[in-house]
Amino acid sequence: MKKKNILNLIGLRCPDTMLFLKKKLRSLKIGDLIIIITDDITTKKEIPLLCNFLNYILIKSNILKIPYSYFLKKK
């Protein structure tokens, strides 16, 4: 069974947002799902780039209203 994680980054701003996210992503195993909740506008650009760079799948994102949410899966 796949493990699901929720990472609440509300109130943090870049670069702290990305530092906490990268730290959490390192602990995930292949197939794990993570849900990221944030109010940092820079994540609209940074998280898709991070997914491409670190080989994660961006399953779904909600960036139309705050808080933003992202659903990622580790390949």
Rank of each mutant, 00 (worst) to 15 (best):
S69D: 05
D40Q: 12
K3E: 10
K3L: 02
T17L: 11
D32P: 08
F53A: 07
G31V: 04
C14R: 09
K29P: 02
K73N: 04
P15S: 02
L21S: 02
K22Q: 15
R13N: 11
P15R: 09
L50K: 13
S27R: 15
K74R: 11
T42L: 15
I30Q: 11
P15F: 03
I47Y: 09
K75Y: 10
K2T: 00
L12E: 13
I34A: 00
I59V: 06
K45C: 03
K65V: 05
K44Q: 12
D16N: 11
C51R: 10
L25M: 06
F53C: 00
K4G: 00
M1S: 12
I59W: 15
K60I: 00
L50Y: 11
L9E: 13
N52I: 10
F53D: 05
T38N: 01
I30L: 13
D40F: 12
T38F: 12
I36R: 13
L54C: 02
Y56F: 15
L33K: 11
N55V: 02
Y56P: 04
T42K: 14
G31Q: 03
K60W: 07
N52C: 13
K65Y: 14
K23C: 02
K74F: 03
L9S: 01
S27D: 09
N5A: 02
K29V: 04
L72K: 10
M1T: 03
C51K: 05
K4D: 00
K24R: 07
N5H: 12
M1L: 05
L72H: 12
I63Y: 13
K3A: 01
L21G: 01
R26Y: 06
K73A: 06
N62Y: 14
S61R: 11
L49I: 13
I30A: 10
S27I: 08
I47E: 06
D39P: 07
K29C: 13
